[in-house]
Design a binder for these strands. Sequence first.
DNA 1: ATACGGTCCTGTTCGC
DNA 2: TGCGAACAGGACCGTA
Length: 279
Amino acid sequence: MPELPEVETVRRGIAEWAGGRRISEVEVRHPRSVRHHLAGAKDFAHRLRGTTITGARRRGKFLWLPLDSGDALLCHLGMSGQLLVQPTAAPDETHLRIRVAFDDPDRQLRFVDQRIFGEMRICYDGAETPTEIDHIAADVYEPGFDAEECAAAIRTRRSEIKRVLLDQSVISGIGNIYADEALWKARMHGRESAFGMPSQRIVELLGHVRDTFDAALRAGGTSFDALYVNVNGQSGYFERSLAAYGREHLPCSRCDTPIAREKFAGRSSFYCPRCQEAP
DNA sequence: ATACGGTCCTGTTCGC
DNA sequence: TGCGAACAGGACCGTA
């Protein structure tokens, strides 16, 4: 569920609270949450214990916490993952998967994940981005992101534009919600072919992606329920500003035409049938 | 190399 | 009210 703005909101919270703190103990409560840490749960805990978190970084929807050991704790929230800074005294959450305790006895970092699509693993922190996410493309906020260059890559793809927006190896950070929102802003139907699309249209679309992210970040992320919360357990309020996603039958705010919903690539797409002409 | 469907999970909501 | 089906914000893997 969490897309770039939600992950960035979490990153800021972690950076603020956990930066400079030393890990005293780690408890892995579900092995699936560390399935990509091939050396196993014991090794995972062992390599974290005694290290100090020195920051919090992000690319797309991946988050990693550099450690003073030269490693980093790489995290992906999947569909339902949360990273919470909780009082040690707080009761364990139903879906608590990993607990990270610190020298500070008052608070813990907790990875809570109902569906267990999320994960944590330890990686080497030597490169600019961990090699484990080499296949993840830059997101729109990275200094190295070039909209023209990205548009050039997008228009070579023989697929529909929404599929390409969701392809993290082409551009990262966009998920189903913000794809629909950006397409609505751009008055573009998600099933339009990306192949050979004029670069300027794509650059404009990418501008709308960024605008949508900016607005969501200002609101602290999007949430429909308690599944997405920032590190303090507060939900974002951006869902109030959604123009397309989840608004089937409700009037388009530009033209009053009821928002339509259709199956697309195994999930739902929401769009205005008048503003976003189907190909 | 690229495109696409299926799959990994649990919980909630929907329709009969 | 009960029950199975459909659905949920993501990424990876195997297959074509």
